[in-house]
Simulated scan of single mutants.
Amino acid sequence: MAWTITFFNEKVEAETLRLPPGILANFLRIAELIQEFGPDLGRPHTAPLGRGLFEIRAKGHEGISRSVFCTVKNREIVILMTVIKKGNKIPKRQMETAQKRLKEVQNDDT
C-alpha cells in the first residue's frame, strides 16, 4: 500500500514547489521514493530530527533544502515546512514553528 504526502497548508505547498529547479527535482524524486517505500529511507534522503519530526534532505546545484515532516495514521506524511538550508542546522525559530504545526496535526488526527 502506497504512502501519501500532504502539506500542512497551501503556503507550505507553495514554498516547497518554489524551490530552485535542481533542488525541486531531487525533492520530487525523494517524494516518489517515500510514496513507494515509506518515509524511513535513511540518509541521504530522510533523517529523524527527534520529537516526532523528520526531514527530507533535498540537494541540487543551487544548494540544499530541508522539508520537515511528521507521520500520521493511514500511511500519510504531512510536510510542515520547507526551508533553503543556509547553515548546519535548521534555525531554532523555524524548528519551533515545525513543533507547533506538529501539535496541530496531532490534535486534528485524534
Rank of each mutant, 00 (worst) to 15 (best):
G22R: 02
R66Q: 03
L17S: 03
R51D: 15
F7K: 03
C70H: 05
L28N: 08
Q106R: 14
N107P: 05
K59G: 02
L28A: 05
L41V: 13
A2K: 09
F27I: 04
R51V: 10
I79V: 15
V68K: 04
A25Y: 00
I30K: 00
L49P: 11
H45T: 11
I34L: 02
E36M: 06
I84Y: 10
L19I: 03
P91E: 10
G38S: 14
I77E: 12
T97E: 13
F7Q: 04
I56D: 00
N107E: 15
I79W: 00
N74F: 14
E13C: 07
R66E: 00
I23N: 00
L49R: 11
P48E: 15
L80T: 08
R43V: 13
L17C: 02
P91H: 09
T46Y: 11
K85E: 06
I34R: 00
T6L: 07
F54L: 10
V68N: 02
N88E: 15
R93L: 11
K103T: 14
I64V: 13
R43K: 15
E62T: 10
F7T: 05
K103G: 04
P91Y: 09
K89V: 11
G63S: 09
K11M: 07
A14F: 08
K86P: 05
G63K: 04
V72D: 11
P91W: 08
L41I: 13
K85N: 04
V68G: 03
Q94E: 14
I30S: 01
W3E: 11
H45P: 06
R18Q: 12
L49S: 11
M95V: 09
L49V: 11
L80R: 01
S65F: 01
T16V: 04
G63D: 04
L24C: 02
P20S: 04
W3S: 11
A25N: 05
E36R: 12
G87D: 12
N9G: 09
T97H: 06
T82K: 00
R29N: 10
T97D: 12
P48A: 15
N26W: 00
T6N: 11
R101F: 06
A98K: 06
I64H: 09
R43N: 11
E32P: 03
R18G: 05
P48F: 13
H45E: 14
I30P: 02
I84E: 01
S65V: 01
D108Y: 13
L24D: 01
T82Y: 01
N9P: 07
I90A: 09
L24Y: 02
A47C: 05
I84F: 13
E32D: 12
P39L: 03
R29T: 09
T71W: 06
V12Q: 02
L17K: 10
K100P: 03
Q35W: 01
